[in-house]
Write a protein that binds this DNA or RNA. Structure first.
Length: 906
RNA sequence: GGGCGCGUAGCUCAGUUGGUUAGAGCGCUACGUUGACAUCGUAGAGGUCACAGGUUCGAGUCCUGUCGCGCCCACCA
């Protein structure tokens, strides 16, 4: 006798042991050897590496569940599946976290010094690093933990260095003095992608710049000096102005080009230049040029040979290049001070409100300050071209497709990538500078040089900067497999197949991985990119730590189990649409998954309680004795297999989940289990019972396997306990059992038609019973006419189902007997009649119906009268009249239905 | 300023190339302790598919416009 299962599914009791079992048996491990030997097709998903500091949130829950569903599915299909896990060192993010910890200890990064600080970060990472990977286990992810990688581990650092050197040697990496996005809080450069635009309500300040010499035709100040007005959103930068620009064709200013302005406060002479970049329509048509603090100004100044003047410290305070009273002021304080000074001098024309978009640091949300500095860049155009071509040639497919256009647009307008960061946590830039007097050599090398190859000197200093985090992430699909060595893993598992990630990192990561894959491996790193939606709360806000509107997946696992979480998530993910979940009502949000888990559990429990034997015959062996219901459910299982497979193939997770759900609950549990109950009771006919048991076991076996990718734990728990099928080999785990194909369960059109007709009939009788208030315990007689061939066949075989499930007693064929009763017609035309004399109190029912009819009639008459009243129709608002008409129609309909019903009872 | 997406039941959403009577879960109503499951069962109510036009034998689905919501990109200071 098998151990009894609890009537309620208790996920906590089974999940951890099962996961341990899978892991211990090595099911998660992909075998490169098998692929290399041609014995298996690989299927590879590399995880989008979460930040080492990350704690699992619903976004991960969604993405990683999808990844695991795909992995488990392909594994069952016989592919050598590799789900490669790992984490990202997340340069700025991690450094910021540790800086905060250090600050809480009352110290600063600077006080600690570089070496000690980096040591501190490592300590932190070692302590907390594995957290999120541990959490992925809790939601059932079947990652190959033996291949876990970290972007800052030595092997991956080697890949990063190799790539840097190769690109440098190809001339695709260069160092230059340009305006970059600078975060004055993190004190580092950012790439364009790391500077996130946020709509901001700002001001547009109109400032008067007096001309250095008299100029006719311009407005003048009280002291007689002529002036031009420039408009700016950042008045504090005026102290760094080195010119004023106007459009060459602007009549208003044509005479001024070549003259000088006397820059207020700084009291410097700066030229007025003509540049076609200037927009005549904006502001006054005259623009101040601050080359060191604005990328456009920088370009313009360069065109005119004007040197930049840097007026800010890295912290965005004004430096010593500005006049005394402004020195040391923080940028926004400086803004106030400058505006006040202009006002005091009568040089402030006006201040307008001005809505614009300001770039913010994606890690700390500080307003980015454009800054002129020496940085390292990757020349992107040569890398973008192949990446664009690959997508256009269909080597990479995007789902949903629309993302392909966004990807292409970005690549078409690619800009160089600033990769140096003034941080301590990350891959150190492998560039060394010779300090020998008069040498100045720059050495870029795979190995740290000990002496200068130019002059032989040994005074080498390494570039203090580190590389952008994404400079290691973009190599992830091959750096994790051992590249630059030609390892067996690399040969077996590159390229991967499906990338599942959030659309937010399309540029940061996805596009760059495609570039790197093509550049260093000559092949795109994956065929399919599936971009998920965003998990939002009920107000449509993205779930985030700062808003406190997140859902902790582990809490859901604890409450309802990993399978409930996974099923809920999978069933709510429409193709590329956002997922909405209520953080304040986990019960409702996850009820679908929880209830379904329980249903699956109990159907399994039913089977285990009722199948007497430990072993059943295979379907083929009992084929002749299969009954209608048996043939029907096996045929329907084939349909489910087909739908689930097809939907997984096209990333239609919601539909796949729903197909499985509908089959399991709506067909297997609601109908098949109910119909076979008498056949598996003690005393049932042995042949019939054997057929039912075989079918039940076969059906459960099939649907459990179909459900396994989505609900790995519960399916394994039940599948392990399923009676054996004699003569059939069974794998030791459902994880590695074969995926059911539709062809395994041939369609049986007759069985479907016949059983379908029976379901219709049962449903109709139930509806009539309910409508006439027949007590559930009271049997009714049934008179059928115009019976279809299908129904006749069904009744010949499964009449007992009709009797039991619709509580039908006597069944007669022929026309109704003329007595009182309820009447209905099936879609197939079969006429159903239930004699009600003696079943319900006819007099009372007739009275009830008559009263109801009268009431309706009264309401209808009232409404009709109202509508006949011209005063009403002419004066009442149109929508009120319309509603009244609708009411009348509805009353009429109800009345007619009641009248028919009443006539049937007479 | 460009580009994209969304608007279907009270709520959250499906609806794949246009095709019977527009579906699901939750919620709601009535009835039900039938030995798998009350995290359940049976039945039911609830929809002008945002709005206005158009194409078509036929439109939730295709086209145009309007309104509302959201996202992405962009160097108008």
């Amino acid at each position: 006798m098998r151990e009894p299962l609890s009537p309620q599914y208790d996920p906590g009791a089974i999940e951890t042991p099962l996961y341990r079992l899978w892991e211990a048996r090595g099911y998660f491990q992909a075998r490169a050897g098998a692929v290399r030997a041609g014995r298996a097709d690989p299927y590879v998903i590399v995880i989008p590496p979460p930040n080492v500091t990350a704690v699992l949130h619903m976004g991960h829950g969604l993405n990683n569940t999808i990844q695991d569903v795909l992995t488990r599915w392909q594994r069952m299909r016989g592919r050598e599946a590799l789900y490669l896990p790992g984490t990202d060192h997340a340069g700025i993010a991690t450094q910021n976290v540790v800086e905060r910890i250090v600050a809480a200890e009352g110290r600063t990064r600077a006080e600690l010094g570089r070496e000690a600080f980096v040591e501190r970060v490592w300590q932190f990472v070692d302590e907390t690093g594995p957290t999120i990977l541990q959490q992925l286990r809790a939601i059932g992810c079947s990652c190959d933990w033996s291949r876990t990688r970290f972007t800052l581990e030595p092997a991956l650092s080697r890949a990063v260095r190799e790539v840097f050197v190769q690109l440098y040697e190809k001339g695709l990496i260069y160092r230059g003095n340009y305006i970059i996005n600078w975060c004055p809080r993190c004190l580092t450069a950012l790439s364009d992608e790391e500077a996130e635009g946020e709509p901001t309500q700002g001001r547009l300040y109109h400032l008067r710049y007096p001309l250095a010499d008299p100029a006719p035709g311009l407005p003048t100040l009280p002291d007689g000096r002529a002036y031009v007005v420039v408009a700016t959103t950042r008045p504090e930068t005026m102290l760094g102005d080195t010119a004023v620009a106007v459009h060459p064709d602007d009549e208003r200013y044509r005479a001024l080009v070549g003259r000088d302005v006397l820059l207020p406060l700084a009291e410097r002479r700066i030229p007025i230049v003509a540049d076609a970049f200037v927009d005549r329509e904006f502001g006054t048509g005259a623009v101040k040029i601050t080359p060191a603090h604005d990328p456009n100004d920088f370009e313009m100044a360069r065109r005119h040979g004007i040197a930049p003047l840097d007026i800010m410290t890295p912290e965005a305070h004004l430096n010593d290049a500005v006049p005394e009273p402004f020195r040391g002021l923080e940028r926004f304080a400086a803004r106030k001070a400058v505006v006040e000074a202009f006002r005091a001098a009568g040089l402030l024309e006006k201040i307008d409100d001005h809505a614009h978009t300001l770039p913010h640091c994606y890690r700390c949300d500080t307003i980015v300050e454009p800054r002129l500095s020496d940085q390292w860049f990757v020349r992107m155009a040569p890398l973008a071209a192949p990446a664009l071509a690959a997508a256009r040639a269909g080597q990479v497919r995007f789902t949903p497709e629309r993302h392909a256009r966004v990807y292409e647009h970005w690549l078409e307008n690619i800009r160089d990538w600033c990769i140096s960061r003034q941080l301590w946590w990350g891959h150190r830039i492998p560039v060394f500078y010779c300090g020998t007097e008069g040498c100045g050599a720059m050495i870029v090398a795979r190995e740290d040089p000990t002496s200068c190859p130019e002059c032989g000197g040994g005074a080498l200093t390494q570039d203090p900067d580190v590389l952008d985090t994404w400079f290691s992430s973009w190599l992830w699909p091959f750096s994790t497999l051992g590249w630059p060595d030609e390892t067996e893993d690399l040969a077996a598992f590159y390229p991967s197949h499906t990338l599942v990630t959030a659309p937010e990192i399309l540029f940061f990561w996805v596009a760059r991985m495609i570039m790197a894959g093509l550049e260093f491996r000559d092949r795109v790193p994956f065929q399919d990119v599936y971009l998920t939606g965003t998990v939002r709360d009920m107000e449509g806000r993205k779930m985030s730590k700062s808003l406190g509107n997140g859902i902790d997946p582990l809490e859901v696992v604890k409450l309802y189990g990993a399978d409930a979480l996974r099923y809920t998530v999978i069933s709510s993910v429409g193709l590329g649409t956002d997922v909405r979940m209520d953080p304040n009502d986990l019960e409702t949000t996850f009820s679908v998954g929880r209830n379904f888990s329980n249903k699956v559990w109990n159907a399994g429990r039913f089977a285990l309680m009722n199948v007497a034997a430990d072993e059943v015959a295979p379907v083929a062996a009992v084929a002749p004795s299969l009954e209608l219901a048996d043939r029907w459910i096996l045929s329907r299982l084939g349909v489910a297999a087909q739908e689930i497979g097809r939907n997984l193939e096209t990333f239609r997770f919601h539909e796949a989940a729903e197909s499985a759900y509908h089959f399991f609950w709506g067909e297997l549990a609601d109908w098949y289990l109910e119909v076979i109950k008498p056949r598996v009771q003690p005393g049932a006919a042995p042949v019939s019972r054997a057929a039912a048991e075989t079918t039940l076991v076969a059906t459960l076996d099939g649907i459990l396997r179909l459900l396994h990718p989505v609900m790995p734990f519960i399916t394994e728990a039940l599948w392990q306990r399923l009676p054996r099928v004699s003569g059939a080999a069974r794998s030791e785990s459902i994880m590695i059992a074969a995926w059911p194909e539709a062809a395994d369960y041939p369609r049986d059109a007759d069985a479907e038609a016949q059983f379908g007709e029976l379901m219709d009939l049962i449903g109709t009788v139930r509806a009539l019973r309910s409508e006439y208030g027949i007590a559930p315990a009271t049997p009714v007689a049934l008179i059928l006419s115009n019976v279809s061939a299908a129904l006749e066949a069904a009744l010949a075989r499964e009449e007992h189902a009709l009797r039991r499930l619709a509580r039908v007693g006597e069944i007669r064929h022929g026309s109704q007997d003329g007595g009182a009763g309820a009447h209905a017609v099936l879609p197939s035309g079969v006429e159903v009649f239930l004699p009600l004399a003696g079943v319900i109190d006819l007099d009372r029912e007739r009275e009830r119906l008559a009263r109801e009819l009268e009431r309706l009639d009264g309401q209808l008459r009232g409404t009709v009268a109202k509508l006949a009243n011209e005063q009403f129709t002419a004066r009442a608002p149109a929508d009120v009249v319309a509603r009244e008409r609708e009411k009348a129609d509805s009353y009429r309909e109800q009345r007619d239905r009641l009248a028919t019903k009443l006539a049937g009872l007479s």
